[in-house]
Structure formats: structure tokens, C-alpha cells
Amino acid sequence: MTEIKTKPTQVTAADFIAAVENPARREDAKIVCAMMERITGEPPRMWGPSIIGFGSYHYKYESGHEGTMCRLGFSPRKAQLVLYILTEDPGQGAQLARLGKHKTGKSCLYINKLADVDMSALEEMTRDALAYMNAKYPA
């Protein structure tokens, strides 16, 4: 079985954020980090080389594949800010409509800059994503 690359590391989230080249992306990362820490009550921790995660959960698929991952997280990538907060909840559609300029992937929300979005909608989505994860994967 292959080793999972996305696991906690010894790098601090603060050091990782400080090294983000783009000053605007770095400031957005600080804001998202503080928001997620406040909402989750968990300290930020690096997962792999580029994901800042909060909390953790253990998953196991029907195929037998299993692992541990952060409950919520984000990554200040070069092109966009990526937030790992999308769930299977159909109610997220209304939140996304209120959010502002964004793109989505399977479980990823892509934002160019926080100035493009409604922060109250983003916080609501983050709270709801945490509640979803806590219900699906109780601690």
C-alpha cells in the first residue's frame, strides 16, 4: 500500500504563511488561518507540504483504503486560495450563491482573493462544514 503524503509535519503554519511570496495572498492566509482556528478551536497544523489543517479525523473507504486527514483546511497556493470546506450538503448551494467570486472542485473552494467574497458567508460555510465533519466523523 502506498504511503499517504498528506500527513502532519513539523513545519509550523506561521512559518509556512510567512514564506508565501505574494503579500496579498499571505495576508489572506493569515485571515483564513485565524478564522478557522477561531471556528474549530484547534491550532493550525501543516498537513503535507502545503495544506494548513485544523483538527483531524480517521476515514476508511469500502475499498479498505484508510487514513487520517484534517477536518478543515486551506492552502494559499500561487494561483488561488484553496479552502477544503465543501461538503455533500445541498444547502451549500445557497451559501455559494451569496459568497461572491469563486470556483469549486469536488471538496475545494477556490478564491482569488478574500476581497472578492462575502466573509460572513465564508464563515457560515466554514462553521457548517465543521458541523458536517463532526457529525459524519465523531471524535
Rank of each mutant, 00 (worst) to 15 (best):
Y59T: 08
Y61G: 08
G41V: 04
S63H: 04
S50F: 15
E62K: 15
G67L: 12
G67R: 02
E42L: 03
A34V: 08
S50N: 13
I51T: 06
G67D: 04
F54S: 01
K60W: 01
W47V: 02
I52Q: 11
Y61P: 10
G64R: 08
W47N: 04
M46Q: 07
H58D: 06
M35R: 12
G48L: 09
S63D: 09
G67W: 09
S63Q: 09
Y57E: 00
I51F: 14
A34C: 10
A29R: 06
V32L: 09
S56E: 15
I39H: 01
G41H: 03
S50G: 12
I51R: 03
P43F: 08
T40E: 04
I39L: 05
S63P: 01
E37R: 14
H58Y: 05
E66L: 02
K60G: 04
F54D: 02
A34W: 12
S56D: 13
P44D: 06
S63R: 06
S50V: 11
E42N: 07
A34K: 14
Y61E: 12
E66G: 03
I39M: 05
H58V: 02
V32G: 07
S63G: 09
V32Y: 03
G55T: 02
E66H: 09
E42K: 10
A29G: 04
E42F: 05
E37N: 13
A29Q: 03
S63T: 06
P44Y: 09
S63W: 02
I52C: 08
I39G: 04
M46A: 04
G48V: 13
F54I: 01
I51G: 05
E42G: 09
M46S: 08
M35N: 12
P44G: 11
E66M: 06
K60N: 02
G64S: 02
G64I: 01
G67K: 05
E66Y: 01
I52Y: 07
E62I: 14
G48M: 12
G67C: 11
W47T: 04
I51N: 08
E66F: 01
G41E: 00
W47F: 10
